[in-house]
Nucleic acid binder design. Structure first.
Length: 504
RNA sequence: GGCGCCAUGGUCAAGAGGUUAAGACACCACCCUUUCACGGUGGUAACUCGAGUUCGAUUCUCGAUGGCGUCACCA
């Protein structure tokens, strides 16, 4: 190790913040923000915030071949919309940057070489093409490969290996895993897990292109960024022992691991883009609210304990106060869109009428182009009847134009109506409505209930036929009174005349 | 196949060595009602199996079974 290197390492160490909880969300910008990702980001954020700590965003872009245009933007946008604000990251900087792995590439090499010097890693000059062939071989070949043979480079003379590497011969750096013994690591939710060392392989740390592998970059970055809690998917559980060996090799303190079980589409399959499972943005587009998505996702794999065990509605800030690692579930959770829908409906009902009118208006106007029909009045009808925003337009298809409908709709057992009764109701109502001094909900209501009383029939007997006449629909959001109010006198009367015609 | 993890109703899940085994979604019934909703009340439905420990295990231990993960110069 040169004096310069030594100084470099010391400087890097000096930057590391101590004494506070620091977590990081470190996605690779290769895909989209699926629900499992979002949940990991949420938990990571909550663990930091619960402890009053820092939430760091880091981009893991070491795979040159899998760069996806714009993928990072999707992640930024999602985090921002969800309110998962990071304290440090590529876009805002911070004390331990850079926060993009490709911009840190020089560092990994230095640390990999340090590990070689310490004897916990070695240069490997084996042919890449041959290895790849082996890796992509048939299943039977793969099984044979399990009877793994020792990498010949493992026993190369260190001085000789160093000479070859420095002479320009292509190489990778591999971790030297002990052949004997076991390694135990601790996870906050899974407890202690012990594995035999001979089940671990001498994984590549530094690739031929000089960039680190995911596993190596993680360890180096997490240490150098002062990460105290490593929150990630349980698919990384199997590589955790190798991490411990790495930390021990460096002589670094091991962070707390928090592995999260996957979010499943069904009992057998994880949620995945490939199978068309929705991303955060897909859900938004489908009419789900951010708050509802976040609340539901928080409960997918975590549950409140103690006094709040029965509670299920939480804002992000509330979660930041009560989130507890102990409540994280160890088994996979199946994503249930029905329950998300329920949360969404609850959030919609909890909105103020004004707020709902605001978010619903674009959907209302998809179906109701006639500006004379008040969007806010329509919204008022919709609020208790809407579970997801996208189902709004279909409920309003009778506003702009009275649809063709069957006279059979006038027959309803419960309302005690049939074509004859309906015709009589419409004919009685028409002149009265024409003469109604003020066209508003209250007057309309009084007129119709008054009529029912006069005729000696139940309210429904009067209301049903008129509602059918003005809407042409068996099922409508809101009753006759509201519909007539919104449609206005002219349009309502026109539709009622048409109804009489139809029944004649 | 090796290694590892997991296992309470259809789903999310609480729970504890002794309970009538919570709660929520979904489903069903009834009530409310001006259709549909909302709201209210009630209901159907679960501890994978087998040993062991124990006075007593769904809870602890072991095993089986099943599911998942991993075994890349991908993350």
């Amino acid at each position: 190790m040169t004096a310069d290197d030594k100084k470099y390492f010391e400087e890097m160490e000096a930057r590391i913040p101590h004494g506070r909880v620091r977590t990081r969300f470190a996605p690779s910008p290769t895909g989209y923000m699926h629900v499992g990702n979002l949940r990991t980001a949420l938990y990571t954020y909550l663990i930091a915030k619960r402890a009053g700590g820092d939430f760091i965003f880091r981009l893991e872009d070491t795979d040159q071949s899998r760069q996806v245009e714009g993928a990072a933007e999707v992640i930024y946008r999602t985090l921002k919309e969800c309110g998962l604000k990071h304290d440090e990251g590529p876009d805002i900087g911070g004390p331990v940057g850079p926060y993009i792995q490709t911009e840190r590439r020089g560092m990994y090499k230095k640390y990999a070489k340090m590990l070689v010097e310490k004897g916990h890693a070695y240069y490997c000059f084996c042919d890449k093409a041959a290895e790849e062939e082996e890796a992509s071989g048939e299943e039977t070949d793969a099984k044979e490969a399990f009877a793994k043979t020792d990498d010949p480079c493992r026993s190369l003379d260190p001085a000789e290996a160093l000479r070859r590497a420095e002479s320009g011969e292509p190489y990778v750096i591999r971790q030297r895993i002990p052949h004997e013994g076991t390694t135990t690591f601790h996870d906050a939710s899974y407890g202690d897990i012990t594995v035999p060392n001979d089940s671990l392989d001498d994984q590549v740390l530094l690739k031929r292109d000089g960039l680190p592998t995911y596993n190596f970059a993680n360890v180096v970055d997490d240490h150098l960024m002062g990460i105290t809690h490593v929150v990630r998917g349980s698919e990384y559980l199997a590589s955790a022992p190798k991490y411990n060996l790495l930390y021990e090799g460096f002589g670094w303190e091991i962070p707390e691991y928090v592995h999260c079980s996957p979010v499943m589409r069904d009992a057998q399959h994880k949620m995945s883009k490939r199978h068309g499972d929705p991303s955060y943005e897909d859900l938004r587009e489908a009419g789900y609210l951010t708050e509802a998505i976040l609340n539901y996702v928080a409960l997918l794999g975590w549950s409140p304990r103690g006094e709040i065990a029965e509670r299920e509605f939480f804002t992000l800030d509330e979660l930041s106060e009560v989130f507890d690692i102990a409540g994280i579930s160890k088994s996979p959770a199946i994503f249930d869109i029905e329950k998300l829908r329920y949360f969404n409906a609850q959030y919609i009902r909890d909105m103020t009428p004004e707020r709902f009118a605001e978010v619903a208006e674009p959907y209302i106007r998809q179906a109701v182009k006639n500006e004379a029909f008040s969007a806010s009045k329509i919204a008022a009808l919709l609020q208790q009847r809407t579970e997801i925003l996208t189902e709004i337009p279909a409920k309003l298809d009778f506003f702009d134009e009275l649809p063709e409908y069957d006279a059979e709709l006038y027959t309803n057992k419960k309302s005690k109506t049939n074509p004859e009764v309906s015709r009589k109701v419409l004919e009685t109502a028409l002149p009265r409505l024409e003469a109604l001094p003020s066209w508003d909900a209250e007057s309309l209501h009084d007129l119709m209930t008054g009529m029912a009383e006069e005729m000696g029939v139940k309210n429904a007997t009067v209301m049903w036929p008129i509602r059918i006449a003005v809407s042409g629909r068996m099922v409508t959001p809101g009753g006759v009174v509201e519909l007539c109010d919104i449609l206005g006198r002219d349009e309502s009367l026109k539709r009622i005349r048409k109804g009489i015609e139809k029944l004649s």
